[in-house]
Design a protein around this nucleic acid. Structure first.
Length: 596
DNA sequence: GCGATCACGTA
DNA sequence: TACGTACGTGATCGCT
């Protein structure tokens, strides 16, 4: 039903207000919630029935529509009613748009996209169209049939109200049907707690983080861009000089010709289609020619400038100087979040040049940035799930875990652990989590495979609980075809019994890694929800800004610093109860580079 | 305009 | 034979 008049709006309100569950779906002029406007909104409260309120159709001779101001009070009476359970498909998007209109959905009950993700995080697509085909056996028209695609694409505002209404109503209808279908499946598979107590509450937290954004020092970034540009250009000239000709340095193909044919440098490794020119290779051949070192420097600066400096400047809001990422909750197979446009989960930190990028992320006036990161969360999770005595003991005595591992595998006292031995132990510790082979370890440490195998054997001799756990998780995976995290997040491993050794080995590494990486993801999600709740309850102005897998970043008004630091630390350390201590390091600073 | 490929940034 | 998990982005290049 299309709602064009106040009378019809009141009929709709009367119908919806007494519903237990409704679905909502918005049509907008784009997919970026901060850069689009509302075109219409649809609701459904029973199968095969939905309402569409057009408010922003703008085509020639479009009928008179209700305004957003006129419908806002009605929307509020429905969506802010705590007794009406609201569902949606990717409801974080709708939440953002409605919030801009001054409407805050009170009872976000169910997101079908997130539910699909919980049922099977490895699915290629969690789109409503796909889910409808698979679960409802109904195919849906795509949005392209309405707005087209490519350079002639129009927006929903240009689309005929009846066509848009039909499309939107179907979305709302199928969303509610799917939600009602999914709920008992989640219960039956015992992932209802993960869904209702973790993933659903997390939606509003993520929406708030996205809306807040983080402040950038634009002037500084622009200067940095210039500085990098100059050095890129001079390095470029040097490279052409050394190569004896101009070519496209960014093309691995053209670069290969220069390195391996013209300069006759040795081929170290091949890729699927040619000869590898990655950094490891360049490092090896840099012994024989001055060009590779220049290339490494060129690549570093080029990467930083294009991927970070320039794209951040493109995406920053020039009015507020803040940049708003999008946190995706339904992408990774392990339960981690991902971040896009821009990806703020891979801002450089390792090299001095890279760190210059972090310096551009700053706190608002009279605020500081507080970063809180879990110390060795993956290894603590390993200690917990494996119950390995030696590993647990190290954490109970708050030892440096890599030094402690070095002591065990090399049979020496802590004083005898050199930085080199610690580095080896560290590589092994991470290798264990990733299911690394002796070959991989040998590669990484630049040692022979026999030596690597000895290290690994030694590790398992000392950490027999870890060995036992790996055996158990693999046999569980083989028997059941899936693995699970602490909070029952599931990941199917259809290839765990494959006859293809390579395929099977890959599944085995996943079987080892996912319960660890996924449990860490579970833990930080719970912490985020609890911190968000606490900050609201205490009416604090502090804002959670970013999550980087084991790290949370906040913007904190100066008067709140001490109180908030305590809250963050406590909530993160006690989010779940592991059989080993969980520790969080807190740092503060006025930019993301200089934190202490 | 799209998708594959390479390379490289993070945890 | 391949050979350590999980991601996203930019540039190139060949295809449609």
């Amino acid at each position: 039903k299309i709602v064009l008049t106040r009378e019809s709006l009141m009929n709709m309100k009367e119908d919806l207000i007494s519903s237990e569950k409704i679905s909502v779906d918005l049509e907008t002029t784009g997919i970026d919630p901060f850069n689009c406007s509302i075109v219409g909104i649809s609701f459904s409260n029973q199968p095969s029935k939905a309402w569409y309120i057009p408010v922003g159709h703008k085509y020639l001779n479009a009928p008179m529509q209700l305004s957003t101001d006129e419908i806002a009070p009605v929307l509020r009476s429905i969506l802010e009613n705590p007794d009406i359970k609201v569902c949606g498909h990717n409801i974080k998007f709708d939440f953002h748009i409605l919030k801009k209109l001054g409407i805050k959905i009170k009872n976000i009950w169910f997101d079908t996209m997130v539910a699909s993700y919980c049922l099977n995080p490895s699915r290629k697509s969690h789109s409503l169209k796909n889910l409808s085909i698979e679960y409802l056996n109904k195919s849906m028209a795509t949005i392209e049939t309405l707005i087209g695609k490519g350079k002639n694409q129009i927006t929903m505002a240009d689309v005929d109200i009846n066509s848009a209404g039909k499309y939107s109503c179907q979305d709302a209808d199928f969303t509610l049907q799917l939600a009602c279908l999914f709920e008992p499946i989640l219960v039956e598979k015992k992932i209802d707690k993960l869904f209702f107590d973790v993933e659903m509450p997390l939606i509003e937290v993520l929406a708030d983080m996205e809306e807040t954004g983080i402040k950038l020092d634009i002037e500084y970034l622009e200067k940095l861009s210039d500085e990098f540009k100059k050095e890129i250009e001079s390095t470029e000239s040097e490279i052409y000089q050394l190569a004896g000709e101009n070519f496209n340095i960014n093309s691995p193909k053209q670069l290969s010709y220069i390195l391996f044919e013209k300069l006759k440098l040795p081929v170290i490794r091949k890729t699927k289609t040619g000869r590898s020119t990655d950094e490891d290779v360049l490092n090896v051949i840099s012994q024989q020619h001055p060009l590779p070192s220049k290339l490494i420097r060129y690549r570093e600066l080029q990467k930083l400038k294009s991927t970070y400096i320039d794209s951040l400047l493109n995406l920053v809001d020039r009015n507020t100087s803040r940049i708003h990422t999008s946190f995706n909750q339904t992408v990774t197979a392990t339960g981690r979040l991902s971040s896009t446009e821009p990806n703020l989960q891979n801002i450089p930190i390792r090299t001095p040049e890279g760190k210059k990028i972090r310096r551009a992320f700053i706190s608002e006036e009279n605020c500081v940035l507080v970063s809180a990161d879990y110390s060795q969360i993956d290894l603590r999770v390993l200690a917990h799930v494996s119950a390995d005595e030696a590993l647990k003991d190290a954490f109970f005595h708050n030892k440096d875990i890599h030094t402690s591992t070095a002591c065990e595998i090399f049979g020496i006292t802590p004083e005898k652990v050199t930085p080199e031995l610690r580095r080896i132990a560290k590589t092994i510790n991470f290798g264990i989590i990733y299911g690394m082979s002796s070959y991989g370890l040998a590669q990484e440490l630049n040692i022979d495979q026999k030596q690597a195998q000895e290290y690994i054997d030694n590790y398992f001799k000392k950490y027999s609980g870890v060995r036992k756990w790996i055996d158990e998780i693999l046999s569980f995976a083989r028997k059941n075809g899936y693995v699970k995290t602490l909070l029952n997040r599931i990941r199917y491993l259809p290839e765990i019994n494959s006859n293809n050794g390579q395929v099977r080995s890959f599944a085995e590494r996943i079987a080892i890694n996912t319960p660890i990486q996924g449990t860490s993801a579970d833990i930080i999600k719970v912490a985020m929800i609890n911190i968000y709740k606490k900050l609201n309850e205490e009416k604090l102005k502090t804002k959670m800004l970013l999550q980087v897998h084991d790290d949370l970043l906040f913007e904190v008004p100066e008067p709140e610093i001490e109180k908030v630091k305590k809250i963050i630390k406590k909530e993160m350390e006690t989010a779940v109860n592991l059989s080993v201590p969980v520790l969080v390091d807190i740092k503060t600073g006025h930019n993301w580079r200089d934190m202490e």
